[in-house]
Nucleic acid binder design. Structure first.
Lengths: 289, 289
DNA sequence: AACTTCCATAGGCTATGCCTATCCATCGTA
DNA sequence: TACGATGGATAGGCATAGCCTATGGAAGTT
């Protein structure tokens, strides 16, 4: 039983004539005849009485007609749903962010996005990178915003911005006046760093490694604001990305003059996943803003 | 969008794998792949995300799945309806009868039929032959019971019985003692006949014509019982079919010795009309009884 | 009786769905 | 890192099935 057979059947039922139905269906009368015959064959019963003059539904045809119509209606509805679904910018997006980005980059962009696409329900979760990657794989988040690069070809990445790293120094530190400094200059300083698991800790440690620096770590925290408070209190120095700089804190910030002392923030999605219009809108909004 | 594509789509959604779905659908994996691709192409969007390991429905696929299932369900329902409808001996039959048969032949057979096939709703209408033919054509009755033959190849006929004609005579008529008589013997008698339009009038008149008899008609009625009452009252003679003989009436009946003085009762249906099982059961019941 | 109308049949062509073989990417494992 | 296993996509060939035109045959019309 094929869709076109049902179409032809309904056309004949509607017009009361094979010829008319064929015309309406844009096929030749014999072709339509064949398909009706075939349908009747499969059902094992006649659907029409062929009287000399006209054609009339049999009892069975009468019971079959609404069924056939229902199938065609359902089909149209299905197609319509898809088209609509494609046009529609809405639905929900769940975005995951690493903690060292969450407070700085996202809030303003989320509000402008939500204003622009009020149909889209945004959910944000804050997790460290490996958790985000797992959640991308399992589909519990759609997009992750984190530090690039991510190894492997498992994800598609969209870089958003690259920021320099800064040394955070106590207010009265002797290096404060310098426009920039090398990490080597911090050799003697006690360090405050993010806790293990935070990718920016790795970024900072990598930068130190390149400078042959093996810092003594005197404090660890899960968030920059704690580190900066401690730095302001004179416990030591730290390394922070540009976006973490708090103007009104007790710290001073000096740019680190190392071309590799940067971090790149980007959005990634699971490679091969099809993106809804909402997803795409979100990604391009992130890039524009 | 074809039915088999929807089937494959549902199979993939169910099994979460093209290969598994292909196996379940008894086709090769490439064939299934092709059809899914084609479906996606027509819809203009991906229905599945092909991740390395497994396959997952896209947002669009998720909305499409229940639709596709609905179509398939409707289709099954339609098919089921037809099969059921074929098995079922029921529904309704409307049968038309001419007035000169209605009171005699039908009642006993209808009751036995209704007892046997209690699911079938029987309706009877009493009309003269041309009206019955029209109603067969228009489909407002399914079967007509009337005097054969019917001219033309417009109908299919099922002869039921052939009955002799009898002369109905007043109780004290001189011809009463004869075992049979010729119409010529009635040359002198005043005649009572059915009204014009009743086919049996034509049958009787034709018989008279063959006997070179041009009867003087003194009474006309639409039913035999009126004629017979009048005959009993001595108004004249009449011609009646065997089934119209009323044993307890004031008349005497003498067989007419003319091989052509018969009438054949039969059932007819519109040629080319498909008959339901109920129709066929009714026709064969008429013949058996 | 010729003509028209309408559905069915016949024969040929093309498109399409299915097949096997193969490719390519991913994933698990030595 | 390299290799084999798994799973989907691609390529090419074949058979079916739907469509076409031409024709047949029955019924109704002029």
């Amino acid at each position: 039983m094929e869709v076109h057979q049902l179409r032809y059947f309904c056309a004949v039922a509607e017009t009361g004539s094979f010829s008319r139905a064929a015309e309406q269906s844009h096929i030749s009368q014999p072709s339509l005849s064949q398909q009706i015959l075939k349908l009747e064959d499969e059902l094992g019963a006649r659907l029409f009485d062929r009287l000399g003059r006209s054609v009339r539904l049999t009892e069975l045809g009468k019971t079959f007609l609404p069924r056939a119509c229902a199938v065609l209606r359902e089909l149209e509805a299905a197609k319509g749903d898809v088209v609509e679904g494609k046009e529609f910018i809405g639905g929900s997006i769940t975005v995951g962010v690493i903690p060292t980005v969450a407070p700085y980059l996202l809030p303003p962009r989320l509000t402008t996005f939500s204003r622009k696409f009020s149909q889209v329900r945004l959910t944000v979760v804050e997790e460290i990178t490996p958790v985000l990657l797992d959640r991308l794989r399992s589909g519990t988040i759609d997009v992750a915003i984190l530090a690039l690069p991510i190894r492997g070809r498992e994800f598609d990445a969209f870089p958003l911005l690259t920021e320099r790293l800064f040394a955070a120094l106590p207010k009265k530190h002797k290096l404060n006046s310098r426009p920039s400094l090398s990490l080597k200059d911090l050799r003697a300083e006690p360090f405050l760093l993010l806790r293990d698991g935070h990718c920016f800790r790795d970024t900072a440690v990598a930068a130190c490694d390149r400078a042959r620096l093996h810092p003594q770590i005197v404090f660890e925290s899960g968030q920059f604001s704690s580190l900066l408070s401690m730095v302001g209190a004179g416990m030591g120095v730290s390394i922070v990305p540009e976006m973490a700089i708090e103007k009104k804190s007790q710290c001073r910030y000096v740019r680190i003059a190392d071309d590799q002392a940067v971090r790149t923030i980007g959005a990634i999605v699971l490679r091969g996943r099809s993106l809804t219009r909402a997803h795409r809108a979100f990604l391009s909004h992130l890039r524009e803003a």
